[in-house]
């Protein structure tokens, strides 16, 4: 069951259709509703290893649908603390709940100042409307 289109106000967004939920010096990352809708039903999530470093604007993994595969772009830099194993085992979770059960990784940020470069929900909605 695919989720309805939404871009929650409490998240920050990267123009490559990735979101970040900030909590102290940690952030949970995932792909937006727009990204999962463009890809279609996900069948594979190639996750990074716990402890790996991710770099803002760089790829940290891949999500794959029947039709296509896409890099997952990190909106922030840091170290991977946890991978969502539910998304690995049941990638369709990302389609069903992209901002909740379908999160992808949790990181400890190495440069919290990077947050300022991300979009808020209103700016991202405008960005999506342009696509």
């Amino acid at each position: 069951m695919a989720a309805a289109e939404s871009y929650p106000d409490d998240l920050r967004y990267h123009p490559e259709h990735d979101w970040a939920r900030i909590a102290g010096d940690e952030a949970t990352l995932g792909i937006t509703w727009f990204a999962q809708d463009a890809l279609g039903e996900l069948v594979h999530y190639e996750a990074p290893a716990v402890g790996a470093a991710v770099t803002k604007d760089g790829s940290y993994g891949e999500v794959e649908s029947v039709k296509a595969v896409s890099d997952i772009v990190a909106p922030l830099s840091g170290e991977v603390l946890e991978v969502n194993e539910k998304a690995v085992d049941e990638p369709e979770t990302v389609n069903e709940d992209p901002y909740g059960e379908g999160w992808l990784i949790r990181i400890r940020m190495s440069d919290p100042a990077e947050i300022d470069a991300l979009m808020d929900a209103d700016a991202y909605r405008a960005h999506v409307a342009d696509q």
Partner: peptide, 18 residues
Amino acid sequence: DKALRAFPEGRRWHGWEQ
């Protein structure tokens, strides 16, 4: 199509369409 435009330059895109 829209799906392709969602991920423009900079991402590898091995799509079925492609």
